[in-house]
């Protein structure tokens, strides 16, 4: 079930109350009354102040490592763009951004993050890993790319994407998101390793024609 503005507002209000054990939080957020009145089935999220770009380096290629192997350090640059300043996203360029909002999903809610059509029509795409699992806590990393023809000036604080909240069937606090991305205020690349399944497939064929 997707929540509508009124339900989201109710949850946010409840989450603000001291003593709530597993609260739903989006902070900073717009006026709760406005969210309730909007009638929309999503809530807009804003662009944060931290960005990460990947840089060309001597590294031949990025490779997925086996579990336990040290991760390759990818050359990257972090940028802090304070409110009132802009980040220029040039055509065919890619940057990791982050939501201004810190989100906490209770253990019986999941979410999807989706771009805003008005930005997409101008070439700004917020892509890929859009699922947010129950129990997630932190800011959401956004993969921003400009597939259009003109540079786009993006500003921290602007509405950049929207989040749809879903209620899951069963509340089970044992099985909540404990990913490496929990509790981050900066965009993070995270570690990527082969899982057991893929590792078996890879190992069995290594050295074979």
């Amino acid at each position: 079930m997707v929540l509508k503005g009124r339900d989201i507002a109710k949850l946010l209000k409840k989450g603000e109350k001291p003593g709530t054990k597993d609260p739903f939080v989006i902070t900073p957020h717009a006026d709760v009354e406005e969210i309730a009145k909007s009638g929309s089935a999503s809530i807009n999220l804003r662009l944060g102040t931290w960005f990460v770009t990947l840089e060309r380096s001597r590294m031949r290629a990025w490779e997925i490592k086996k579990k336990g192997e040290p991760q390759q350090q990818i050359a990257r640059a972090e940028h802090y763009i304070p409110f009132g300043n802009v980040y220029l996203l040039h055509p065919r360029s890619f940057v990791l951004g982050i939501t201004l909002e810190w989100i906490r999903l209770p253990s019986n809610f999941a979410a999807y993050v989706i771009g805003k059509s008005s930005l997409g029509r101008r070439g700004l795409i917020i892509a890929t890993a859009t699922g947010v699992h129950p129990g997630f806590k932190g800011c959401l990393t956004l993969e921003l790319s400009n597939v259009g023809e003109i540079p786009v000036a993006i500003k921290p604080g602007m509405e950049i994407c929207q989040i749809f909240i879903h209620k899951t069937h069963k509340k089970d606090s044992k099985y909540i998101d404990r990913s490496q991305f929990v509790g981050s205020r900066k965009p993070r690349l995270g570690d990527v390793t082969l899982d057991e399944f893929a590792e078996k497939l890879t190992l069995s064929q290594e050295g074979n024609p």
């Binding site: 900073p28 201004l100 810190w102 932190g138 604080g157 509790g183 205020r185």
Partner: peptide, 20 residues
């Protein structure tokens, strides 16, 4: 991990304070 999360949480709180 706890230390990293706490530091990020504190700095985010300071940013929220500034936004408000």
């Amino acid at each position: 991990k706890k230390e990293r999360i706490l530091k990020d949480l504190v700095l985010k709180t300071i940013e929220v304070f500034e936004v408000e």
